[in-house]
Simulated scan of single mutants.
Amino acid sequence: MSTATSTKVLSLYRNFIRHGHKFSSYNFRDYTVRRSRDAFRSNMTETSKDKIASFIAKAEQDLAIVKRQAAISQMYTNGEHLVVEAPKH
């Protein structure tokens, strides 16, 4: 994988994690972060340039969805937290 491609993939991964943490609901937040990590790890050993390009294109589309849903989630938050969540100080 070229340096530009690996930089692009790393940037996508960071954005997934960053925007996944913006969900107000613990369940959506945890699912998005866990699913993002799993998806990137499962494709980590791919060497085919065509497959990598299709994975990047799909990841960019999915990132747009995560960004949009995280923004909507923040608009309609109720302020209540689940017991499993760490209290915010």
Rank of each mutant, 00 (worst) to 15 (best):
A57P: 06
F23I: 09
R37W: 06
V9T: 09
T5Q: 09
K67M: 15
T32V: 09
I52V: 14
P87L: 04
M1S: 09
Y76K: 05
Q61G: 12
E85L: 08
R29Q: 14
E60P: 13
L82D: 13
F23D: 09
D30A: 15
S11E: 10
V84D: 02
I17P: 00
Y26K: 06
Y26T: 06
K49P: 05
A64C: 11
S6D: 00
T3H: 09
A4K: 10
A59D: 05
A70S: 13
T47N: 02
N15I: 00
S48M: 01
T5L: 05
T5H: 01
L12V: 01
S24H: 00
K88V: 04
H19Q: 13
Y26H: 03
S73R: 01
V83L: 10
F23S: 04
Q69S: 11
V33M: 09
T45S: 03
R37A: 08
E85I: 04
H89R: 07
I65Q: 10
L63S: 15
V33W: 02
A70T: 02
N78Q: 07
R14M: 06
K67I: 12
S36H: 08
S42W: 10
I65C: 05
L12D: 06
Q74M: 12
E46G: 01
K58F: 05
E60K: 12
R37I: 12
F16T: 00
L10P: 01
Q69N: 13
D62Y: 02
K49G: 00
L12W: 00
T45A: 01
E46A: 03
K58S: 09
D30I: 13
S36W: 01
K88D: 02
G20V: 05
K88G: 00
G20F: 04
M75D: 11
R18I: 07
S73T: 00
R37G: 11
S54C: 03
K67S: 12
S36L: 11
K22H: 09
S36G: 13
H19N: 15
Q61S: 15
A53T: 09
D50L: 13
S25T: 05
R37T: 08
A39I: 07
L12R: 00
Y76F: 15
Y31R: 13
R35H: 10
L12N: 05
S24K: 11
D62P: 08
T3K: 09
S6M: 14
L63W: 12
Q74R: 15
H21C: 08
I65K: 12
H81E: 04
A4H: 04
N78H: 06
R14Y: 00
M44T: 01
L12E: 01
T32D: 01
S24G: 08
D38I: 07
E60W: 11
R41A: 15
R37E: 14
N43A: 00
A59T: 08
R29E: 12
S54V: 02
S73Q: 10
E60I: 14
S25I: 07
S42N: 11
F28A: 15
K22C: 11
E46V: 12
E85D: 03
N78E: 07
Q69M: 12
I56G: 05
A70E: 04
R29I: 14
I72Y: 06
A57H: 07
S11P: 02
M44A: 03
K51A: 01
Q74S: 14
K22L: 14
V83H: 03
K67F: 12
R68T: 04
A70I: 04
T3Y: 09
E60T: 10
L82I: 03
F28C: 01
H81W: 05
K8Q: 14
D30V: 14
